[in-house]
Design a binder for these strands. Structure first.
Length: 871
RNA sequence: GGGCGGUUAGCUCAGUUGGUAGAGCGCCUGCUUUACACGCAGGAUGUCGGGGGUUCGAGCCCCUCACCGCCCACCA
């Protein structure tokens, strides 16, 4: 074994071992109540691994490995998502670079190309997940466009259609001019924009003046159908029912009254354009107005309401032309800069054009109800808990979901239209001729909403479905709670009658060191592979702004995953490399602790707890406490607590103390000590395995007598027994504190580190641990231990729990320094005594605080006084 | 406009029934102690965002203000 743990050499080898072992590929036996399963959030098929994946994989892998240690049959369902728009856009870009386009090659050719593209790049992210050592079932990889999956999607569509939950309608939708498709409300993002607000006169038909409206989109005025004012508005009340003349077009517009109109905004008069504005659409419906359209799906002016000179102009150009003409006519009263929020497409980044379009919609109210109930009743729990409210608030105000997309890559809508007007919805095409299939495809989230059960074979009642559905945990980032999680709950309940998972863990978002989002375009992105295998450190991750960023060391997967888990806490956090480095030190520490043990233990020794000395009982108890702490933290989805609890045990207890305390016995070749050490080491790597699987697996392989893989080893059940020996725990705890006090005293008193000081122990509660005080405190303890008459006067006294260590005069002790140290300690004690005494002198405290708190304070005061006395 | 989260040591963050503030990194002082210098021992460092309140006692509970971030929302 090398003195340094080298993940680059170990990890790929171990990952391969796990892959070949079959531990990730459970047989579909039993049912879901006894088994444990997680469906991975399917990454985009052409995606690459980013920090969010790395964290989420660490979370899920930790959960899976812990469940497996508890003896459960575990399955982590793997697969990728076809990601309609994202994938189509990539392939379109490729076509353009080749000098062609999807229109030119046609739909069939295009879809073939996307499949070819998927063959080429689709495996990359799977390979990356393999490198992470994730315990996913690689033998059963799914894809949302696989034939079986596609059949299930169509079946779901048809059933919802037949129930009347899916319908086709002309409705105002979010039109994305970038992808030339409708998108759902969740895919638009409001962005603050400064526009010009135009105040435009609409002459009254009566000829007596004009009514002025304010708008940022003059080009839509050609689709105006009315002018609305507030019924309470004194200025306009007399005009209600009159008509105005639409400039440039000459159409008559009725002046109507509607409460929606705010009197204080703009002029208090609002032009109503139902075809191009969501609010106007509502108002128009209330008043039975038509909703003509003047902007087409290509973003250009079109329709019978558009005068010929504007036809075919892009909306923005039409605006300029229309404003120019209005200016000529003197109809623009004024303009002002106006900052407001405007919807943009998250996909293409283009400004949304609201327009009336024939689309497929899904009614959500009926589906939402049971999905609300299961969360309210606690059948599904969110972690951290605050997301429950976010989910419920959203679910209670669901509007219809626009599910059709004008794309070619995706699940084509299973509806056929006949020349004669008949409509057929079905998984299979209708017989006969004259049928034409709806060209649109379904929103990607429609198919991913079926993920947890279709991946297991639904609608067939497969053994996999029986064994692993419902799944246990769904782990994800908060950005897709609505897009994905909510829809899985609704569709899962609707089609399987069961919740798709019982716990939703919403993990942290890892931010760049400057607090901004990690993003490639901002230059704040970080490729996890650079951290794992070593690579250039991006400038945003340099230790100082102007410094050469240098390179990441090859931290390894264990370090990156422990670091990410330790960073994340249910709170968004800035990435800090120190945590990863801390993890690297932890793996190295564990590695070297193992070396210490393994190098000194005979190969025929077997792990077995055979405690003799107090410290043996102590470490077994501490180990048990660590098992409880780590286990509880993981079960509560508090991964940073789990990671730090492990760290504290390995560093603060196992390495700093136990190994130091048993070294003499280990060097003596004591058989019981060796067996006990192997036991502690085995249980420690088992405990650590879910968090740092690689290094622990590697160490386990070196432990004499270890069988099989650590990944398949069942863990001790920590909760099953009480802490074995609290008496020894206390005794060793005291010894530790005493040694620390002695060391601190030596340091402060300028004693040479190597010097062994003659001393006398005058304290209670130190039995066998006296030898530890002597060795680790570098003392030559007077064998008599007492303060017999005639013994030399002490040169100094070191306060330790239960008494003092009297240091006898010797050439290594500087009496002056010792005196200074003693006085400092005395002042410290006196201050504490004053504080405690003051508290107890407070009658109200004594009267009202709980008895045990008061009692504890009294005991402390007494102990402090005794210490002072001893000095 | 509504909601949620944050503000704790120089930096990144813990602090889960209210009982004298913690970790890692960084900093200071020592140490070739036969597992580890990616090490060991010791040390310094905080009016816990501001203000008010409840309480014997508040980083934790209540009110309020400020700033930062996120989400939702139909003001032309």
């Amino acid at each position: 074994m090398k003195t340094r743990y080298e993940p680059a050499e170990v990890e790929p080898r171990i990952a391969q071992t796990w892959l070949e072992s079959g531990i990730n590929n459970p047989a579909p036996e039993g049912d879901s109540s006894e088994n444990y399963s997680i469906a991975i959030p399917p990454p985009n098929v052409t995606g690459v691994l980013h920090m969010g994946h790395a964290l989420n994989n660490a979370v899920q892998d930790t959960l899976i490995r812990r469940a497996r240690q508890q003896g459960k049959r575990t399955k982590w369902i793997l697969g990728t998502d076809h990601a309609g728009i994202a994938t189509q856009t990539q392939v379109e870009k490729q076509l353009i670079s080749l000098g062609t386009s999807r229109e030119e090659i046609g739909r069939e050719q295009f879809v073939n190309r996307v499949w070819a593209w998927r063959e080429l790049y689709g495996g990359e992210i799977i390979e990356q997940i393999k490198r992470l050592g994730s315990s996913v079932d690689f033998s059963a990889e799914r894809f949302t466009m696989d034939a079986d999956y596609a059949q299930a999607v169509l079946k779901v569509f048809v059933e919802l259609y037949e129930k009347g939950l899916i319908y086709r309608d002309r409705y105002l939708v979010n039109w994305d001019p970038g992808s030339l498709s409708a998108i759902s409300d969740l895919e638009v993002q409001d962005v603050e924009v400064t526009d010009t607000l135009y105040y435009i006169d609409y002459p009254l038909a009566s000829g007596s003046g004009a009514i002025t409206v304010a708008t940022v989109r003059p080009e839509t005025m050609l689709a105006d159908v009315a002018i609305a004012v507030n019924p309470e508005d004194e200025r306009y009340r007399r005009l209600i029912g009159e008509t105005a003349v639409l400039p440039l077009a000459g159409r008559r517009l009725k002046i109507i009254a509607d409460d929606y109109v705010k009197t204080e905004f703009g002029t208090g008069a609002l032009k109503i354009t139902p075809g191009h504005d969501p609010n106007d659409f509502e108002i128009g419906n209330r008043h039975g107005l038509p909703h003509p359209s003047v902007i087409g799906e290509d973003g250009r002016m079109q329709g019978e309401d558009v005068p010929e000179r504007f036809l075919g102009l892009k909306a923005a150009d039409a605006r300029d032309a229309i404003v120019a003409e209005l200016d000529e006519l003197g109809l623009i009263q004024r303009r002002e800069a106006y900052t407001h929020t405007v919807p943009f497409s998250q996909r293409s980044g283009e400004r949304i054009e609201p327009l009336i379009s024939l689309q497929w919609f899904m009614r959500m109210d009926e589906l939402a109800k049971p999905a609300i109930d299961v969360v309210r009743s606690g059948q599904i729990r969110f972690h951290p808990e605050r997301w429950t409210k976010v989910y419920l608030d959203w679910m209670e105000n669901l509007r219809p979901w626009c599910i059709s997309r004008q794309l070619w890559w995706g699940h084509q809508i299973p509806v056929w239209y006949h020349d004669d007007g008949r409509v057929h919805a079905g998984v299979e095409a209708p017989d006969g001729s004259g049928w034409e299939r709806d060209p649109d495809v379904l929103d990607t989230w429609f198919s991913s909403g079926l993920w947890p059960f279709v991946t297991l074979g639904w609608p067939e009642q497969t053994p996999e479905l029986k064994a692993f559905y419902p799944t246990d945990v769904l782990s994800t980032g908060r950005d897709i709670i609505f897009l994905w999680v909510a829809r899985m709950i609704m569709l899962g309940l609707e089609f399987t009658g069961e919740i798709p998972f019982s716990d939703v863990y919403v993990h942290s978002i890892i931010l760049a060191p400057d607090g901004r989002r990690m993003s490639k375009s901002l230059g704040t992105g970080l490729d996890p592979r650079g951290l794992i295998d070593g690579g250039e450190r991006p400038p945003a991750f340099a230790s100082a702004p102007d410094e050469d960023p240098g390179e990441f060391p090859a931290y390894g997967t264990d370090a990156v995953r422990w670091g990410l888990l330790a960073m994340s806490s249910g709170q968004d956090v800035r990435f800090n490399e120190e945590k990863v480095s801390q993890a690297q030190q932890l793996t190295n520490k564990l590695w070297n602790a193992s070396r210490l043990v393994l190098q000194r233990v005979d190969s025929d020794t077997r792990a077995d707890a055979r405690p003799h000395a107090p410290e043996d009982h102590w470490i077994l108890a501490r180990l048990q406490r660590a098992q409880l702490a780590v286990g509880e933290a993981i079960d509560a989805f508090e991964f940073s607590r789990a990671a730090l609890a492990l760290y504290d045990f390995v560093y603060g207890e196992l390495c700093d103390w136990y190994l130091e305390l048993v070294k003499p016995r280990l060097y003596d070749g004591d058989a019981d000590t060796a067996a006990t050490l192997l036991h502690v080491l085995t249980e420690t790597v088992t405990l650590a395995h879910p968090l740092i699987p690689f290094v622990t697996e590697e160490i386990y392989a070196h432990i004499p007598g270890s069988e099989g893989l650590l990944a398949g080893r069942r863990a001790q059940s920590a909760a099953s027994a009480g802490i074995s020996d609290t008496g020894s725990e206390d005794e060793v705890q005291r010894a530790i504190e005493a040694i620390q006090a002695i060391r601190a005293w030596r340091d402060a008193a300028d004693v040479k580190p190597a010097a062994i000081l003659p001393a006398r122990l005058a304290a209670d509660g130190y039995g066998e641990t006296v030898t530890h005080l002597a060795r680790l405190g570098r003392l030559e303890l007077d064998a008599s231990g007492g303060s017999a008459d005639g013994a030399a006067a002490a040169a100094a006294a070191i306060v330790i729990p239960g008494g003092v260590v009297e240091v006898l005069p010797s050439e290594d002790v500087d009496a002056e320094a010792a005196l200074r140290k003693r006085d400092a300690k005395r002042r410290e004690l006196e201050a504490e005594i004053r504080r405690a005494g003051g508290k107890l002198a407070n009658e109200k405290f004594v009267a009202r605080a709980p008895a045990e708190v008061v009692q504890a304070e009294r005991a402390k005061l007494e102990a402090l006084r005794a210490e002072l006395e001893a000095l």
